[in-house]
Design a protein around this nucleic acid. Structure first.
Length: 511
DNA sequence: TTAGGGTTAGGGTTAGGGTTAGAGCCGGTGCCCTGCT
């Protein structure tokens, strides 16, 4: 057992007197060498769970993070707090800087990486000879949510852990349902993980589903809602274009509100600007896709509105969880039209290759395998086969998994090819069925006659907190009965120190 | 002379297909690499 005086280190390094719920238990288990899965609500300081051990353990702590912006934030905050032995490797570094970090790896206690960067041969080789004290997966639900199709390098983390000599593993997430938890454990190959799971239901949110006959009525409904409530609001869309168009329309209709949009197709700098403006309270309403969320910890969001339905309950819980982090009353509203089910269905279809896509790509690969040439660059393969990038990467992942693609050379092995093909076909079928099932689960929950809160959280946890606010529209709540009206902010009244802090310590409270 | 900071652009994409009903629809999530001033 470790004998650290953890409170002392917490005070020295982070300036806090006491741990928040779950932190100490997780840190103790980590220091005792256990594999740990921690599911802690956002805003409870998940990052301390590995940052503190990283300072105490001998060797380097490797942190896998899904977004470059999150890594950059973390590194900046740690350095600002006086902890210098931290670095991140990502595409923001030029080759020389990258080499420098890798050459000085033993100097660092904490290293942040994306799962893709971990697949870089040079990086993997260097880490392979290091003494890795702890392997951390931050936002670990990404393994399950993104790994199977979108970012398949998430599924290779288990292998990488092996190549690093099997250090203790810590997986952390803000929302991971039991199903996602099992997937994380399976993918990381950590059967004996210590579990520290805290419930994710929020007692201060009222749930509403507003049925509309046609999606045209949604903007009217939004206008009505926002005119009635003057408070920070997020509106989730599944389409970039509609997020933009609706933002423009709301700007026109609600001249006293600051409205903006945010999605993954925008320039990095624009995204950062909008995000900061929203955090600072300079924007009232943000029309966004699911790109907006991770790493955003604004306390006073009162309304989370879904213009489109998300693809599964897990996403909905995550998105709704961004409301009311200050504990005050907040409302979740879904605007639901009968035709809304189509869009998520199409999205599910577009990320998985069809049977004919598979036939096409396999016959193409077959022809070039015979030529014994290196695999052409991705652009050529996609040109030749007509496969979207996401689907080609999915196939490539399976080729590598079956050792049919090594050093960019396709391996001739008829038996392995047959096995691989069958497996890919099976995986596509299973994933499709699974995702459609998850979607129906969500749609069914919208059509329920019972309590929405129970319907939402019951599949994921035993006990549900008694709400401290009106529960849902099926329990007698009507959003019209509530009126949020924030006092007018006046940033000019802040003294210069506070204003500088706002500017320079963006996201300080994150994690 | 060097370390460090900075910007911009383009490549992965642009239509087909569909496991719910019948006419019109409309598409989310990020990373990394190369090369430039």
């Amino acid at each position: 057992m470790n004998t650290y005086d953890l409170e002392k280190y917490l005070k020295t390094h982070f300036g806090f007197d006491t741990f928040r719920e779950g932190q100490k238990e997780i840190i103790s288990d980590v220091l005792n060498g256990y594999d740990v899965l921690g599911v802690l609500p956002t805003g409870t300081g998940k990052s301390i769970c590995y940052q503190l051990p990283a300072m105490l353990l001998d060797g380097i702590t490797v942190v896998v993070s899904p977004l470059v912006s999150l890594m950059v934030d973390q590194v900046r905050q740690l350095k600002a707090a006086g902890f210098k032995r931290v670095a991140a490797i990502n595409s923001f570094l030029d080759p020389r800087q990258k080499r420098q970090v890798l050459d000085r790896l033993s100097h660092y206690r904490l290293l942040y990486l994306s799962p893709e960067m971990l697949q870089n041969q040079h990086v993997a080789d260097r880490l392979g000879i290091m003494d890795v004290a702890l392997f951390v997966v931050d936002e670990a639900h990404c393994i399950s949510q993104w790994g199977h199709e979108f970012r398949t390098d998430y599924l290779r983390l288990g292998d990488m852990i092996g190549k690093m000599g099997r250090p203790p593993v810590l997986a952390l997430s803000g929302t991971a349902t039991p199903e996602v938890q099992s997937d994380i454990i399976r993918q990381l190959d950590c059967e004996g993980m210590q579990l520290h799971i805290y419930p994710m239901d929020k007692a201060n949110i009222s749930f509403v589903v507003e049925h509309v006959n046609h999606s045209d009525q949604k903007v009217d409904k939004l206008t009505e809602l926002l005119a009635h409530n003057h408070a920070p609001a997020m509106i989730y869309f599944s389409s970039r274009l509609q997020a933009e168009n609706t933002a423009h329309e709301l700007m026109r209709r609600l001249s006293d509100r600051q409205v903006a949009y945010y999605h993954g197709g925008m320039e990095h700098t624009d995204r950062l600007l909008i995000q900061q403006q929203f955090m600072n309270g300079q924007l009232d309403v943000i029309c966004c896709t699911s790109a907006f969320g991770m790493g955003i910890d604004k306390k006073d969001i009162r309304l989370v509105i879904h213009y489109h339905i998300p693809p599964q309950l897990e996403s909905f819980i995550q998105e709704v969880g961004r409301a009311g982090r200050d504990g005050n009353h907040s409302i979740s509203i879904i605007l639901y039209a009968p035709s809304d089910d189509m869009l998520p269905k199409k999205l599910i279809q577009s990320e998985l290759p069809s049977t004919s896509d598979l036939d096409c790509i396999f016959s193409y690969l077959h022809t070039i395998t015979h030529e014994d040439q290196p695999l052409p660059v991705d652009a050529v393969v996609m040109e030749e086969t007509g496969l979207p990038e996401i689907q080609w990467r999915f196939i490539k992942h399976h080729l590598k998994r079956h050792q049919l693609l090594e050093d960019n050379i396709l391996i001739t092995n008829r038996d392995k090819w047959e096995v691989m093909k069958e497996e890919v076909e099976r995986v596509v079928r299973d994933r499709y069925t699974y995702k459609m099932m998850k979607l129906s689960e969500l749609i069914m929950s919208l059509q329920t006659q019972g309590c929405r809160r129970v319907m939402l959280y019951k599949p994921f946890q035993k006990d549900i907190k008694e709400p401290v606010v009106p529960c849902c529209d099926h329990c007698g709540f009507a959003w019209q009965k509530v009126r949020f009206d924030i006092a007018k902010r006046n940033p000019e009244t802040l003294d210069w120190i506070a204003r500088l802090n706002r500017l320079f310590l963006q996201g300080e409270a994150n994690g």
